[in-house]
């Protein structure tokens, strides 16, 4: 049984000259418990719109999202493209305001993201990569039923992005959560996901779902990832047009 099922029949908005524009059409997606799913599609295909709908920030759509958990309001954490930390609160305050984790869990998260020394620092003194790690801690600290991530590693230099991916996957393996991770970088998706969902744009719909059978160890080698990517292009030529 799937953990979360998402059915969005229609999401449209009116453009400036009052024409209706459909952003999402008949999107059906189910996520298993503790599954790491990557959404891959060209930028501007409506991925952020989808995440905003799932996060409850955008309620103007036709469709339903159901959680198998019995809770009235499922906990949904959101790692935004920009870290969106409160600049006037310290790292620790930013985390505790959003999630209020117990001491042990907080220390574990700070340590695994390598931010223990920075916990009393204000975000202005952190690098972009560090700020993003804080926003990841904030999301995990909430212990969410669904964790949304909107290209959180974009505009980082390659080694930092690789390190961040490594930290995220490591954390997720120790603290499993259902993750929906949006990216336009196929290599990034292959490196992390259990399953990749390829999205078409205007309106957004699913064109292909591909499970990634690679072991976690195998993905540490970039040659393996590159080879898998090339194989994907051969097996599913329709996805080449997206990227």
């Amino acid at each position: 049984m799937s953990h979360i099922s998402i059915h969005i029949h229609d999401k449209s908005y009116r453009t400036a000259n009052n024409k209706a524009k459909q952003v999402i059409k008949a999107l059906h997606l189910s996520l298993h418990k503790n599954e790491f799913v990557c959404l891959v599609g060209a930028s501007g295909c409506g991925k952020t719109t989808l995440l905003n709908i799932l996060a409850g920030l955008d309620t103007d759509y036709a469709g339903e999202i159901t959680f198998s958990t019995q809770q009235l309001s499922p906990k949904i954490a959101y790692v935004f493209q920009n870290p969106r930390l409160l600049p006037w609160r310290t790292v620790l305050e930013n985390i505790e305001l959003a999630a209020n984790p117990d001491k042990e869990s907080l220390d574990f998260l700070l340590n695994s993201m390598g931010l223990m020394a920075e916990k009393d620092t204000y975000p202005a003194h952190l690098s972009l990569g560090m700020s993003r790690r804080v926003s990841i801690i904030r999301a995990f600290a909430m212990n969410p039923d669904l964790l949304l991530m909107d290209e959180p590693f974009v505009s980082l230099d390659a080694p930092t992005a690789r390190q961040m991916r490594h930290l995220l996957v490591g954390l997720w393996q120790k603290r499993p959560h259902t993750i929906l991770f949006v990216t336009h970088d196929l290599r990034e998706a292959i490196a992390m996901a259990d399953r990749i969902i390829f999205l078409d744009k205007e309106p957004m719909s699913i064109i292909r779902e591909v499970p990634i059978p690679l072991t976690r160890e195998a993905r540490n080698t970039s040659a393996v990832i590159e080879q898998f990517k090339q194989q994907l292009f051969i097996d599913y030529p329709e996805i080449t047009a997206l990227l």
Partner: peptide, 16 residues
Amino acid sequence: PDLLDMAKCYHFSRMK
């Protein structure tokens, strides 16, 4: 508006 969205997403109360 980004920070307000963040607050909404993380269920900040009105006072918070």
